[in-house]
Design a protein around this nucleic acid. Structure first.
Length: 255
DNA sequence: ATGGCCTGCAACGCAGGA
């Protein structure tokens, strides 16, 4: 099974990129973030024509998540159970015997912001939920835009980012706590080139200068981690005209 | 130098992203 995650930064704008990319990569499951579409506007027909079913949870202007799959998705859950949140950031479904949890973790804006406190509370709730999900679903993948650069090697300029949102110690501690549940960072299961990132700022010619962060992740339960053959970041779409600021992350899992 | 760039909304600038 080929799994992917991609923050598309507006599915309306990026649909042509997504369709081109699906035709090239032909993944089995794709999680999307920042669709920024209400559900009545989701491009069901265009994706069906490309061979993909879709489940989605969106809102106007902000956030919005979706799971595209060749096989049917079942047991669909939106949001973190028991955690009241108007923002559409979570979608879980079972596809071909694998539990897929698609996340758009809050950005946090800055460490002195109310949004940062919301992010930490959100991460606390996420951790509790994923513990029960993992117990119920041995084949579990948690993937999406985490808005956390887990280590300094995931940051183009660690000194400049030290203590800043996306890199702060409380956020990184939450990321490590997810690993502590028994999840593995798929990207780090394999040897990777230095300074490989999944997001680059639109400003300052950030992509060409590789001023990036690795904040999009794929976490695998033990059963999936031992079956994982590879994980990579696909930088190609970031170089296309009018790109998303995020690149897709792709992993291959043996049947 | 606290902005630069992009998106959506709805207005002729703003919020939010990261």
């Amino acid at each position: 099974m080929k799994l992917a995650t991609w923050n598309v930064n507006s599915l309306k704008v990026r649909l042509p990129h997504l369709l081109d990319w699906l035709a090239t990569e032909r993944p089995d499951v794709v999680c999307l973030q920042e669709t920024k579409l209400t559900d009545d506007l989701f491009p069901v027909a265009a994706l069906a024509a490309a061979g993909y079913r879709a489940v989605y949870s969106g809102q106007k202007t902000y956030n919005g998540v979706a799971i595209l799959s060749r096989a049917e998705a079942s047991e669909v859950v939106t949001g973190i159970p028991g955690f009241a949140d108007e923002q559409k950031r979570v979608l879980a479904a079972t596809v071909a015997g694998t539990r897929v949890v698609c996340l758009y973790i809050p950005n946090g804006q800055s460490v002195d912001s109310d949004k940062y406190q919301y992010k930490l509370a959100w991460l606390e709730a996420l951790q509790g939920w994923l513990k029960t999900e993992l117990a119920a679903h041995p084949r579990l993948v948690v993937l999406g835009d985490f808005n956390i650069a887990p280590e300094d090697r995931d940051v183009h300029d660690p000194a400049a980012w030290a203590g800043q949102v996306l890199c702060s110690e409380p956020e990184r501690a939450h990321f490590r706590a997810l690993l502590g549940l028994g999840l593995k960072d798929a990207y780090r299961l394999f040897e990777q080139a230095d300074k490989t990132f999944s997001w680059w700022d639109y400003r300052q010619d950030g992509f060409r200068r590789n001023l990036g962060l690795r904040i999009d992740h794929m976490l695998l339960s033990e059963a999936l981690a031992v079956a994982c053959n590879g994980c990579r970041i696909d930088k190609a779409p970031r170089a296309w005209e009018r790109p998303s600021d995020h690149a897709p992350v792709i992993a291959e899992i043996s049947p």
